[in-house]
Design a protein around this nucleic acid. Structure first.
Length: 455
RNA sequence: GGAGGGAUGGCCGAGUGGACGAAGGCGAUGGUCUUGAAAACCAUUGUGGGUUUAGGCUCACCGAGGGUUCGAAUCCCUCUCCCUCCGCCA
């Protein structure tokens, strides 16, 4: 969500920014809706003020009336108030009549308020719906271009591209041959694009998860979070997945539950509607979760192997920062993802995503790709984004600055650290030997009972 | 799943449909006092929207959303969450 004030004050500039993303968010409608909203608001609030005023007067009159009625009652019971009964009766009758008459005006005002409220509700609903479709403003450093072909690709780093004196196999051959990957039975359970890791394969993935969590917790200073994997749809709106990606989410048919597509959704909502102190920031979370994505994947693309499925595991880093520190945090998080690649001995490269390729909530995104020797591809293992205050505004996650009292929205960032299937592919394919066995990266051996080779 | 009880400011906790943005307490901040501190005393102490050159004015918010009413923290309905009891269950 953008700040409505920016759109109100600089609509043309916002339109340019949206155009840089090759998006077509309805800025003109928003400007018109916002103006109409304030128009109605002023009118309706003036009416409310009038009604409050007269209601208070009625309140005072009713109070006096009640007293008089009490006097009358006492007098009728013979407890004598010193006034003749008929005078009292007439007075009470007159006061009742005038109080009743006084109700006409506020009642009339109330009807007009109800009308205006209805219109206001409609205007705000439309305005809000339109606002949800406006993407974040890209950072000036983000390369401009409509799609991934405009991404800025940096030189490969890390380990050299492995060379073999035999023909390296893709993981979809290596895995089944070693008995650590079972495609047939995965399909038997859940259909195409599902697989079963077994034996050393399951152990290996577990080892990678534990290794990554340990590094992020112990070296990078994150707090580990284990969130629910199914959450209410409002969490998806906050994180920016909804309304845009409704079709890609696995949903519960009976209740308002959705399966996480990424831990980012849960982590974005942890501090929803919270007011934090500046001293609390930065908050750094790391979470391991499975991720579920109902992707309408084209037949024939990425079908082989475990590169892309409807369920995969991921370790995700997440930060809440001040606005001043979010870009430095983005660089750190990119480096933290790289640290994992380095430790696992991967050749990797960094990409700066183009405006047309970064996610909706992001102003700047780095992708990290590792080389997989068997299928001969660079595979995306991490995506690190600065979402500035976009998600925080939707989440209403604010903090109180140490200096000055005006509350501000936090900035939020996310970075995979890393996505498991592609890491598994790289380990299997890059570390394979001629006999089809796989050398376990050294840093993982302590997590696998010292095992050095899977054969 | 069934039956009850609850949700009020940073926290605790009052609140017969009319003066309630909300008593009281705690906490926090500023001040008086003090060599300093504590105590005591005094004062201040929510968020968001609209409007305004400014000071200000105004509207909304008592779990959420509807309703009744001239007027709702208070009455009615729906929902969410928490607690107690019963049932079911890895």
């Amino acid at each position: 969500m953008l700040d409505i004030n920016i759109i109100r004050e600089k609509p043309e500039w916002v339109k340019e920014q949206v155009a840089r993303r090759f998006d077509n968010a309805p800025i003109d409608e928003i400007v018109a809706g916002d103006a109409r909203r304030r128009e109605i608001l002023q009118e309706v609030e003036e009416l409310r003020r009038q009604r409050n005023e007269t209601s208070k007067e009625i309140g005072v009159a009713m109070g006096a009336l009640k007293k008089r009625e009490a006097d009358l009652k006492r007098a009728e019971a013979g407890q004598d108030g010193g006034q003749p009964l008929d005078v009292l009766r007439a007075e009470v009758a007159a006061m009742t009549a005038s109080a009743e008459a006084a109700k006409d005006k506020p009642r009339e005002i109330g009807e007009r308020i109800a009308q205006l409220d209805e219109e206001l509700r409609e205007v705000e609903e439309t305005l809000h719906a339109n606002m949800l479709w406006v993407p974040n403003i890209p950072d000036p450093s983000t390369p401009v271009g409509p799609d991934e072909s405009f991404n800025l690709i940096h030189e490969p780093q890390g380990a050299p591209i492995p060379q073999f004196d035999f023909e390296p196999k893709p993981h979809w051959d290596l895995g089944p041959e070693l008995g650590i990957l079972d495609f047939e039975r995965g399909v038997k359970l859940s259909g195409s694009r599902f697989y079963i890791l077994r034996g050393a394969g399951a152990r290996l993935q577990h080892a990678v998860i534990q290794f990554m969590l340990d590094m992020h917790v112990q070296k990078h200073g994150y707090e580990e979070i284990y969130p629910p994997f199914i959450v209410r749809s409002e969490n998806f709106v906050t994180a920016g997945q909804l309304p845009k990606f409704y079709d890609n989410i696995y949903r519960d048919a009976e209740e308002d539950f959705m399966l996480l597509g990424t831990a980012e959704i849960a982590l974005t909502n942890m501090h929803r509607d919270e007011l934090m102190e500046e001293a609390d920031l930065p908050i750094k979370y790391v979470a391991y979760t499975p991720c579920f994505r109902r992707e309408k994947m084209s037949a024939g693309k990425d079908v082989r192997g475990i590169k892309r499925g409807h369920q995969f595991d991921k370790v995700e880093m997440y930060r809440y920062t001040t606005p001043e520190t979010s870009f430095a945090a983005l660089e750190e998080m990119k480096q933290e993802a790289i640290d994992i690649c380095e430790a696992l001995g991967f050749p990797y490269r960094v990409l700066e995503l183009a405006t047309g390729d970064i996610s909706y909530a992001s102003v700047k995104t780095y992708d990290i790709e590792v080389w997989a020797a068997g299928c001969g591809e660079w595979l995306e293992v991490s995506s690190a984004s600065n979402c500035t205050d976009f998600q925080a505004r939707r989440a209403n996650a604010r903090y109180r600055p140490a200096e000055g009292s005006k509350t501000r929205f936090c900035h939020t960032l996310n970075a995979s650290g890393l996505a498991l299937p592609r890491v598994m592919i790289a380990i299997m394919e890059n570390n394979q030997q001629e006999d089809g066995s796989i050398v376990v990266p050294e840093v993982l051996r302590p997590y696998m009972g010292g095992r050095e080779v899977i054969r």
